[in-house]
């Protein structure tokens, strides 16, 4: 769980940073896409690195979901009879929404791939023109809204996920325990704000006019 969590966490961070190129203009983003497709050439054939990354990513997601699924089942098995009076919650909303948050994320990812990678749900989709595809997508208010909501869910998931990761790996020490929490907050916010800025920017016409 923790290992896949780190990979996924690393990916969303890099992905968000990459997407920031959007603010530099359509061609920058396209170039970046192109770069990703051809990185390592000629030592590695085109799309090589990209596919390796895709495979690692896919494996991580699959494993992550499998782990989440089996842990959820373990949790259910550990308490076969539920409480008649629902348990009170004492801790963060984030920690309690990891499972549903994860499901939202999967749905989002599927939609997102169909939207911007495969293009099947995006009528204006053009291969190799990510900027234009994105703008086309985000112009539709409910698509933009979905992106925003999904990314808020991502933020929560990451916030608890990152903090939890420290705990699961036993990286704690009185001296940096406070720092752990700042770190989790900081990164969750950076990624969420970064990601949310894209649909907002399009929606309010700062980008892609």
């Amino acid at each position: 769980m923790a290992v896949t969590g780190i990979i996924l966490f690393g990916f969303v961070l890099v992905h968000m940073l990459g997407n920031l190129k959007m603010y530099l203009g359509a061609d920058h983003l396209a170039e970046y896409g192109e770069f990703l497709r051809h990185v390592g050439e000629p030592a590695i054939p085109a799309y090589g690195v990209l596919w390796i990354a895709r495979i690692v990513l896919l494996a991580s997601v699959v494993f992550h979901i499998w782990a989440a699924w089996s842990l959820t089942r373990m949790a259910k098995a550990a308490r076969p009879a539920r409480y008649e009076y629902k348990e009170k919650n004492h801790t963060t909303y984030a920690s309690r929404t990891m499972r549903w948050g994860g499901v939202i994320l999967v749905l989002f990812i599927i939609f997102h791939l169909l939207d911007l990678t495969v293009g099947s749900v995006n009528p204006a989709f053009t291969e190799g023109r990510p900027f234009e595809n994105m703008v086309a997508s985000f112009r539709v208010w409910y698509v933009a809204l979905f992106y925003i909501l999904a990314n808020l869910a991502l933020g929560l998931h990451l916030y608890h996920g990152v903090w939890s990761l420290f705990q699961s790996l036993g990286w704690n020490h009185p001296r940096f325990n406070a720092w752990r929490s700042w770190f989790a907050h900081g990164f969750a916010w950076i990624i969420t704000l970064g990601n949310i800025s894209f649909p907002l920017a399009v929606l309010f016409g700062f980008v892609g006019k």
């Binding site: 842990l71 373990m74 949790a75 098995a77 550990a78 308490r79 348990e87 919650n89 004492h90 801790t91 963060t92 920690s95 309690r96 990891m98 608890h160 903090w163 939890s164 420290f166 705990q167 699961s168 790996l169 036993g170 990286w171 704690n172 009185p174 325990n177």
Partner: peptide
């Protein structure tokens, strides 16, 4: 018993205020 995904509910109800820092220590 189930698996710990760091909910920290335990710490909130523990009558002796045992800290989940000990969970991290044990994991380490």
């Amino acid at each position: 018993f189930g698996y710990c995904s760091n909910f920290a509910e335990c710490e909130a109800v523990c009558p002796k205020g045992i800290s989940i820092d000990f969970i991290a220590r044990m994991n380490r």
